[in-house]
């Protein structure tokens, strides 16, 4: 019961936090300068400029401007994206699809590799594989994503020529319909295996880049919680029953060790969001992260605000889901009242 109440409270606070974040960022961007530049051209007279200023409420005090922005958001209007030359809400779905596809691929890499590596190391505590896994994990936290990406590019694109950059081969891209914007899914829907392979091929390097940091964190957590679980009495009991070590490890210890790991998996989602900016820049991936970087460099406030809004809602939402999953997995949390 307590858990449910806690979660409901969290759900109610979530919009407040999003509002708080958007107020801070909105204030900062407006203090940095008026976004009027994207509406102006050289031939305009003073009166025309003033008229535009009035039309977009740029001459109002800051809190009023914020209310106009927030009102727009509620009506589904996020403003005009100068860098994409279109309304934000029209440009955004494609960008989200591109980022989503990359993030899911990176997540799959991180969770399978992380849990696998952590289990492997934890079951061989203080032996060579464990030490190697430790070095790998610590380097993960210190690895600049932008550098890792470039090293992968140098090795696998420039020298070996195994993987491409970008998101797809143009000829294959135009040969199929794109109802979802997720190229792998689109290719499957069209029944075009060559396009599917191509989309997957383009995903490998960016997904590995983006997933690396999270892999390291997950592996480290998995290893230490597995080591802890393996010292529990129930593991001895399972062994005494005569169960194979493989079964003890996979069915018993690993299951429990996954509980704290789930939290870390959720937390490493923040890594994916942050890493996506640099990863998308380097691999020329047309997603949200690269869009934000462009917007930042060219002072496109509507795009920056849309990105911040999107990110904070997603980030808070994922954290909430993690808490729910955690409460669900660890029955003690629910029963312990």
């Amino acid at each position: 019961m307590q858990v449910r109440e806690y979660l409901i409270r969290r759900l109610m606070i979530l919009p407040l936090l999003v509002i708080g974040t958007s107020i801070i960022v909105f204030t900062l961007t407006r203090v940095g300068g008026s976004p009027i530049g994207i509406y102006l051209s050289h031939e305009m007279s003073q009166e025309e400029v003033a008229e535009i200023e009035a039309r977009y409420h740029l001459d109002d005090p800051l809190p009023v401007q914020y209310l106009y922005w927030a009102g727009g958001v509620l009506r589904g209007d996020l403003g005009w994206s100068g860098i994409s030359a279109g309304p934000v809400t029209q440009v955004m779905p494609d960008k989200i699809a591109a980022s989503l596809e990359l993030a899911v691929a990176a997540g799959i890499v991180a969770v399978t590799l992380g849990v696998g590596l952590g289990t492997f190391a934890g079951a061989r505590r203080n032996r060579l594989p464990d030490h190697i896994a430790r070095i790998f994990s610590i380097s993960g936290a210190s690895m600049p994503t932008f550098w890792f990406a470039i090293i992968l590019l140098i090795v696998f694109w420039v020298y070996l020529g195994w993987f491409p950059v970008g998101r797809s081969t143009t000829a294959l891209f135009t040969s199929i319909e794109h109802p979802t914007g997720l190229y792998t899914v689109d290719a499957l829907l069209a029944g075009n295996l060559r396009a599917f392979g191509d989309a997957l091929w383009h995903l490998v390097l960016p997904a590995v880049t983006l997933g690396y940091g999270a892999t390291a964190i997950i592996a480290r957590m998995m290893r230490s919680s597995l080591v802890e679980e393996l010292q529990e009495d129930y593991v001895d009991a399972a062994r005494a029953k005569g169960l194979a070590e493989r079964v003890v490890l996979k069915r018993h210890a690993r299951r429990n060790a996954l509980i704290p790991t789930v939290t870390v998996i959720g937390l490493s989602f923040g890594f994916l969001l942050q890493g996506s900016v640099v990863t998308e820049i380097i691999f020329q991936w047309p997603g949200m992260g690269r869009w934000m970087a462009d917007a930042v460099l060219r002072g496109d406030q509507a795009t920056i605000m849309a990105y911040v809004l999107f990110t904070s809602v997603l980030f808070l939402g994922v954290n909430l889901v993690v808490d729910i999953v955690y409460a669900y997995l660890d029955r003690r949390v629910v029963l312990g009242d």
Binding site: V18, G20, L28, T29, Q274, V277
Partner: peptide
């Protein structure tokens, strides 16, 4: 709470941009 509702790099990116 508000500061924690957005990843730090993204926040720093938005501020530095301004």
């Amino acid at each position: 709470d508000v500061f924690l509702s957005i990843p730090e790099l993204i926040f720093a990116l938005a501020i530095a941009a301004v």
